[in-house]
């Protein structure tokens, strides 16, 4: 029977926490970038101008149907060759996950915007609003509330996807875990602790999301 010994792992707790911090930084960067990119892509996709909607559609479909790890390798190893720029693991990861999650967010935004009744557009136009005013003041505020559950789900997916950066040596939680496992010769304990850290964090976020959803549902601003 194997004797579990967590003490070497716990003694290096700060090492793992540093990785956890980097995971959070990367998730926050990609999330804020992804929301902006997603909204822009969705608006472009819904545009009547074909030169806007076509490229947006291509970007969305390409980033949704290719594996994120391939995208990361492309941005990390491939892109610097075309652009002749220095690529850091963080920059490559932030870029990849911003666009990748942006493509998924775009589809959520689009579904939300399309779900708003035509009457809302017509009413806004009737009182003299322009198209962009109507989008900003009337349609988007309502759509965002409806999109909330899918947005949260995607954000949680994003946090899990950030583990892929460990493969290009960005010191996220998983990368630090790998290092620690090799240093302490305790892979079982290290990977178990790290799995639990992810589990607790993500469960906590899901719990918060579920509570917020319920509150929205109670105030009647929100329908699923």
């Amino acid at each position: 029977m194997y004797e579990w010994d967590f003490s070497p792992v716990l003694a290096q707790g700060g090492f793992l926490l540093a990785g956890f911090r980097n995971t959070l930084i990367l998730t926050a960067t990609a999330l804020s970038g992804g929301l902006v990119v997603g909204l822009l892509l969705a608006l472009a996709r819904l545009s009547h101008r074909r030169w806007l909607s076509m490229p947006a559609g291509v970007v969305i479909e390409v980033f949704r149907t290719t594996p994120p790890l391939v995208q990361l390798f492309w941005f990390y190893f491939g892109l610097p060759i075309v652009l002749a720029v220095e690529m850091t693991p963080f920059l490559a990861a932030a870029l990849t996950f911003t666009i990748q999650s942006g493509a998924f967010f775009a589809e959520i935004f689009r579904a939300g915007i399309v779900s708003i009744e035509k009457g809302q557009w017509e009413a806004a136009k009737a009182i003299g609003m322009s198209h962009s005013q109507c989008m900003r003041r009337i349609v988007l505020p309502q759509a965002v509330k409806r999109m909330f559950p899918s947005m949260m789900e995607r954000s949680i997916e994003l946090m899990k996807t950030t583990t892929l950066v460990a493969t290009v040596s960005y010191a996220d939680l998983l990368f630090q875990a790998n290092e620690l496992a090799q240093k302490t010769f305790r892979p079982l304990e290290v990977f178990t602790v790290v799995a639990l850290m992810y589990f607790v964090t993500i469960s906590f976020v899901s719990f918060l999301a579920a509570r917020l959803e319920r509150r929205f549902a109670r105030t009647g601003e929100f329908t699923t």
């Binding site: 583990t163 998983l174 875990a177 790998n178 993500i202």
Partner: peptide, 11 residues
């Protein structure tokens, strides 16, 4: 569902 699949594979 609440842990990354890459962590699972490495585990």
């Amino acid at each position: 569902r609440n842990t990354p699949v890459l962590v699972q594979i490495l585990w």
